[in-house]
Design a protein around this nucleic acid. Structure first.
Lengths: 349, 349
DNA sequence: ATTTTAAACTAAATCGATTAAATTACTCTG
DNA sequence: CAGAGTAATTTAATCGATTTAGTTTAAAAT
């Protein structure tokens, strides 16, 4: 005998109503806790509750959402969920949103505005109520439209200077300035850096922090010391740039990685080149993944408050969804500079 | 003037129908590409398409799902999306599912069957069509129920020996056996290991692989050399176990970490204890995170085919959803043993 | 001229909830 | 005892799609 589709039909309000010989309305009211205010007799209310349990009733959220216009769902669109920074944040967002009764749907845009648009639309079709977004390059128009449609959203990690929105970011300029100043205080004069997507606000801020730190240390900025990494061809590009900076004619002996994904690959390259950290190259990096503590020479790094970013983003969004919001919220969180040993052991004033 | 709610009402089929003076049915048929088979005149069909584009029509997927019973959505419940293993797999699953037109919803169970049940129910209320699940300890009953309800699902990472289901796992026994044999071939007689959740099938297999490798090398298994890590108190527990094994009276000089999350913390502990790898301790580990390549002494490790697991899981699930499936599929994928330098440089037979 | 047939389109039911408004059956009040 | 008031419940509309079963009109066949 083959497996007939034991179609264990899912229980609906109707099923309960029929079994008890009452109306669907009554059942709905009871199960939504409105028995008292609708003056439904305790006897019947109890029966309904019992039957619902017995039949293992679970509301169909599609139907409910269609009727009420509320899905209790938000979407989190990030660059790439397999990136540890976002993965960690995804987890925080998931947990925090749950506290307020929201389910989160995730999506990866791959820094591609076309994908981002597809995702936005797909999520809108599914009636999510709000978004947390790390906007890609070239997505200004999309985000502006979202705003015009009055759809609640919070930007994270990046934002647009010329668009008034909620956002939660870190103080990239400040962090970058401190990191590079750390190197200048060690006496390094030639400081190279690896950059990627310099058009993104946060990456631009990081570059400016680098420039200002140099300038304040009386060092002339040299464009050729800025390695521009190609996202499409990531790994090779990092290798190429690190090699170029460390080898003649540049012979750079201090490197600032503007993201950890570049840093991790870059350090691999440094290792392969048989350069020692910090003896042959001093290194600082934006972001502070678990890796950095484990290196032979633990890496001095800028730690972003990932959890706080996630928490804050959810809080702002939920405020707006429950219309407790009092205008747009712009949050700039501080970073922590984790001094380890990758720049040497010198102590400075 | 304050922001009045410019309620940019979303376009529905009705809106299009009214504008054109035709029926909703007709609009629906055209937009679903059934114009030809429903003998709708080209002229009107074209008008509909145009108007839909003009009004930027997007189908309400709640309504569609309610009516058709299809949501084109699957759920992926893992232990923890901030764990790099699952984060990476989440990404693969997201991309692969999209190829078949499915959207994925993610959830973290924290190895907690109560949470897992809540999630299952929540996803079922939202009418996901199938699941990919890494089942927690104590979830046999839940999974059995899922099976009885004829809801399509694929287990990953772990499965139940006494429950017939789809699954995609790796050959844990074999991988473990090879890793430990690697150590015995280096001449180590006392080999410690860190274990966690030994009741989970895959962890049990790893333990058995360890035992058999010892036995085949003529080494007696000592239960006291198996450190049992406590999940609740993770970090401290790893430290405590590593210390116990490396210090007198055990003085163990070879360690096998049964997961990378233990390995990473364990190596941190080893570093703090000023033990050198592999001079003072040889190390092998299950899992192969990016970290391991970057260590001062790159770690010899068992690399799981994360992408393949994700791909295969999606394929099996989609097969079943499109009812192309021919019975349950049980897939055991091979691992790759990445020999690096954490056991020393000796070359053996 | 009448019946068939085909083409082009529509009415209405349905999915499973929520909710405003209505109904029924009492009990009270003056 | 008519009319008001209230408690307990139901009717029916609605959300936005899909889909079955028609309907209408005109052309083709008899």
């Amino acid at each position: 005998m083959k497996s007939q589709d034991n179609n264990h039909k899912v229980t609906s309000l109707q099923d309960i109503a029929k079994k008890l010989g009452v109306s669907v309305t009554l059942v709905s009211l009871v199960l939504n806790g409105k028995a008292k205010q609708s003056r439904i007799s305790d006897k019947i209310a109890e029966k309904v509750l019992l039957m619902a349990k017995e039949l293992n009733y679970r509301p169909n959220q599609l139907a409910r959402g269609l009727r009420t216009g509320k899905t209790n769902t938000i979407a989190f669109i990030m660059a790439d969920i397999s990136n540890i920074f976002f993965a960690r944040m995804a987890r925080v967002v998931e947990d925090e949103a749950e506290k307020y009764g929201y389910k989160v749907m995730f999506g990866s845009s791959d820094e591609n505005p076309v994908k981002l648009e597809r995702m936005l639309n797909m999520f809108l079709e599914r009636k999510v109520e709000g978004f947390i977004i790390s906007p890609t390059l070239g997505s200004l128009k999309l985000i502006r439209q979202l705003k015009e449609k009055n759809i609640p959203f919070v930007l994270i990690d990046r934002f647009f200077r010329n668009l008034d929105t909620n956002y939660v970011v870190v103080d990239n300029f400040d962090a970058s300035y401190k990191a590079v100043s750390h190197l200048t205080k060690f006496g390094y004069k030639k400081i190279g850096t690896l950059s990627i997507f310099p058009e993104l606000t946060q990456m631009n801020d990081r570059l400016n922090g680098y420039k200002d730190a140099l300038s304040d240390a009386g060092i002339r900025f040299e464009n050729k010391y800025v390695g521009k990494v190609d996202f499409e061809n990531f790994r090779e590009s990092v290798y190429e740039n690190v090699r170029k900076l460390l080898m003649p004619p540049y012979n750079i002996r201090a490197l600032y990685f503007q993201t950890c994904i570049m840093g991790i690959v870059g350090l691999e390259c440094i290792r392969e080149m048989k350069f020692r950290v910090p003896l042959d190259v001093a290194v600082v990096s934006f972001d502070d993944p678990a890796e950095y503590k484990l290196f032979e020479t633990p890496v001095t790094a800028i730690k972003q408050p990932i959890d706080e970013i996630g928490l804050k983003a959810v809080n702002i969004l939920v405020d707006e969804l429950k219309s407790k919001s009092s205008g747009l919220q712009k949050v700039v969180l501080p970073t922590r500079f984790m001094v380890r040993r990758s720049c040497g052991n010198l102590r400075y004033g």
